[in-house]
Amino acid sequence: MVDTTRGEAPAPEEEPHGCLFALSQPPLMIFLTVIGVLLLMAAVHDLFLL
């Protein structure tokens, strides 16, 4: 009979990352920066040009 048991321990699962890890990702930071700049431009336009 063939031995099908594994001799090594199972690989540990990755720990879940929190919100700060998600915020540190470059694509998300670029997206949030673009949205922030657009909101800032709209606010400046409303305050000074209207």
Rank of each mutant, 00 (worst) to 15 (best):
D3P: 02
G7D: 10
P26E: 01
H17C: 10
T5N: 14
L39K: 10
Q25M: 12
L39M: 14
V34H: 05
L39H: 09
F21M: 00
I30F: 09
M41G: 07
F31A: 15
E14L: 07
L50A: 10
E14Q: 10
E15F: 01
A9I: 13
G7M: 07
V37R: 02
P16K: 01
P10N: 11
M1E: 12
V37S: 04
F21A: 02
L47D: 12
H45D: 03
P27C: 05
L20P: 00
V37I: 13
G36H: 08
S24M: 06
F48P: 00
A22K: 08
L20F: 12
D3R: 07
E8H: 14
M41T: 08
A11L: 15
F31C: 13
G36V: 01
L47K: 15
F48D: 06
P27N: 05
E15L: 03
F21E: 01
E14G: 06
L47H: 15
T33H: 12
A43F: 05
P27Q: 05
G18M: 01
T4W: 13
L40H: 03
P10H: 11
L28A: 08
C19M: 12
E15R: 07
L40N: 02
P16V: 05
A22Q: 09
P27H: 00
T4L: 15
F31Y: 12
L40K: 01
L28K: 05
I35K: 09
D3M: 12
E14K: 09
V37H: 02
L32Q: 07
I30Q: 07
M41W: 06
E14P: 04
P26I: 02
V44H: 02
V44S: 01
V2F: 10
P12Q: 10
G7Y: 04
H17L: 14
L23R: 13
L20M: 14
I35Y: 06
A43D: 04
I35M: 07
A42S: 14
T33W: 08
H45A: 03
H17D: 03
Q25W: 06
S24T: 04
M41R: 08
E15H: 05
P10F: 09
L47V: 11
